[in-house]
Amino acid sequence: MRLRWARGVRRVAAVAAGAAMVTSAVAMPAAADQQTPDSSGDVAVHRMDADAADWTPQRMRSAMPLDRVLSTATGLVGGLASVLQGLLPFQQAASTGDEWTGGGAVTKTAGRVFFTMDGQDASCSGNVVESDNGSVVVTAGHCVKYQGTWHTDWVFVPGYDNGDAPHGEWAAEQTMTTPQWESDEDMNHDVGMAVVEEKSSGTIAETVGTQQIAFNGERGQEMHSFGYPAAEPYDGSTLTYCNGSTFTDPLLTDDHGMNCDMTGGSSGGPWFSSFDPETGTGVQESVNSFGYTFLPDMMFGPYFGDEAETLYERASAA
């Protein structure tokens, strides 16, 4: 099977574990870490020098969308998939990947993530959440560390708009992930967070606002998913969304699932419960993570449980 990062992962990587297998489409020498990672057991931390000066509009537009896709490798799973296609709620989505035109807070708190991975510029998505330090951006685990290497030159651009950074570029001082993702790239724990720099004008929370975040929530809720898909047919220029009923992945993970056709680059974008289209606010309970090639137009995101909460507490206190 191959794993696709938020369907946007599909063209860049594949994952191996049991019936799954992962290969990287970016086979270049690993870049040197800027600082030594600190793995304390409950959270894996990478410290770096915050510097966003080199991320020009052209460099952002040309960044490769990070994507991860899981494809079938056995007849058994393929047969099961055909059964699942008749059971899963494909028809219950109000949007499966449309440009967000509703305005509201999400147009500021959500944004694009840019970084260097194995010597190549790449992109994901992220979102600012409320925190004690006012500096926490939530994304996917593979958007901070992948295939044994921490990403470098990591910046977040809230409200990104076709190369423009209306609220500035915010470089990470620390990126973090769960120990399960750091050690084994466990899809159930594909959660990453960044503590971004504080500027002379204040924190990122003071600049763009925040969204609520929650852990150990109910399953099966209606949710809104946001991100910046950059693989065809998208180009990463605009904020895109999906919304509809969710379900629990019945195959390899315990992740949330949703009918959504966003592609590479949307990885790390927020999933909101209780989302209010009028205000653009909700409660973040997951991120875009991966999809199966044999279940087209479906997105999966990790359940925010105790491990994600521990990660958030560490980032919030940094």
Rank of each mutant, 00 (worst) to 15 (best):
Gln58Phe: 07
Pro250Leu: 08
Gly282Phe: 09
Glu309Pro: 15
Ala53Asn: 04
Gly126Asn: 02
Glu313Gly: 11
Ala6Gln: 00
Phe114Glu: 02
Leu84Tyr: 13
Asp51Phe: 07
Glu185Tyr: 14
Gly102His: 13
Met60Arg: 09
Arg47Ser: 11
Phe300Tyr: 15
Phe156Arg: 01
Glu182Ala: 15
Thr149Gln: 08
Ser286Trp: 03
Thr263Asn: 03
Gly268Asn: 06
Asn127Arg: 03
Leu239Glu: 00
Ala63Met: 04
Asp235Lys: 07
Glu278Pro: 02
Gln180Arg: 09
Trp100Glu: 03
Asp121Glu: 02
Val43Asn: 10
Thr72Glu: 14
Ala53Glu: 05
Leu3His: 09
Ala20Tyr: 13
Glu218His: 06
Ser273Thr: 04
Pro65Arg: 07
Met48Thr: 15
Thr101Cys: 04
Leu251Asn: 06
Lys108Gly: 01
Gly18Val: 15
Ala31Pro: 09
Gly202Leu: 03
Val22Leu: 12
Gln35Ile: 03
Ala20Glu: 12
Ser39Arg: 07
Leu84Met: 14
His46Thr: 06
Glu309Leu: 15
Gln284Met: 08
Thr293Ala: 15
Gly268Gln: 04
Glu222Ser: 15
Thr203Val: 05
Ser131Thr: 03
Glu182Gln: 15
Ser183Ile: 12
Ile213Glu: 00
Leu311Gly: 14
Asp254Cys: 07
Ile213Met: 04
